[in-house]
Computed example of a mutant assay.
Amino acid sequence: MAEDNDHDLARARDAERLRQLEAKLGDKAVEEQSSRGEEHFSQANMAWRMVTELVAGLGIGFGIGFGLDYVFGTTPFLMVVFVLLGLVAGIKTMMRTAKEIGKEPGQPSDDEGK
């Protein structure tokens, strides 16, 4: 009879330990699933942001150059110059965004690249 009592107590302890382990594993699984989705989503947002910055730089450069060529009646000389300047500005902005990827969320970014 004493052996049956000890056996039941051991099974109850094991069952409790198993429930605790399952709860911990369940919490870990939920954390990992949500962080993967958020990470992928933020990387996609960052990629689209970089593409948009490059295209915006090119578009603004084209618009300024085309407008100045129209006003001054020149050949597309100024348009080419300003498209190249817009490309440089877009790439510079993309590089600044790329530096933000390695930073921890919530950390202030500095313009000096430190």
Rank of each mutant, 00 (worst) to 15 (best):
H40M: 08
I101A: 11
T75M: 06
E112V: 06
L68F: 04
F66V: 01
I60H: 04
I101W: 04
I91R: 03
L25T: 13
L18P: 00
A47V: 15
A56G: 05
S109V: 14
A89V: 05
A23M: 10
R17Y: 06
E112G: 10
V88W: 02
M50W: 07
D27S: 15
E22L: 14
G90P: 00
L68W: 04
V83E: 03
T52N: 12
E31D: 13
G86Y: 00
A29F: 05
M95D: 02
R13D: 04
V88Q: 09
F41V: 05
F62Q: 03
G63E: 01
P105I: 10
N45T: 10
G65E: 00
V30N: 08
I64M: 08
P108K: 09
L18H: 08
V55K: 13
G86Q: 02
I64F: 08
A89D: 05
V81P: 01
I91Q: 04
L78D: 00
V81E: 00
F77H: 07
S42L: 15
G61E: 01
G73I: 04
F77R: 03
K103E: 09
L68V: 06
M79P: 00
L9N: 11
T75G: 15
A29V: 13
S42W: 07
G102T: 12
M50V: 14
P76K: 05
G63I: 07
L21I: 13
E112R: 09
D111R: 11
V30I: 12
N5H: 09
E39I: 12
G63M: 05
R11T: 06
N5L: 10
S109E: 08
E16K: 13
V51L: 15
M1H: 09
T97F: 03
A44D: 05
D14E: 09
H40D: 06
A2W: 02
A89C: 03
I64Q: 02
D110E: 12
Y70W: 06
A47K: 14
G102F: 04
P108T: 09
D6L: 15
F82W: 10
P105K: 13
M95P: 00
I101M: 05
T93Q: 08
K99H: 10
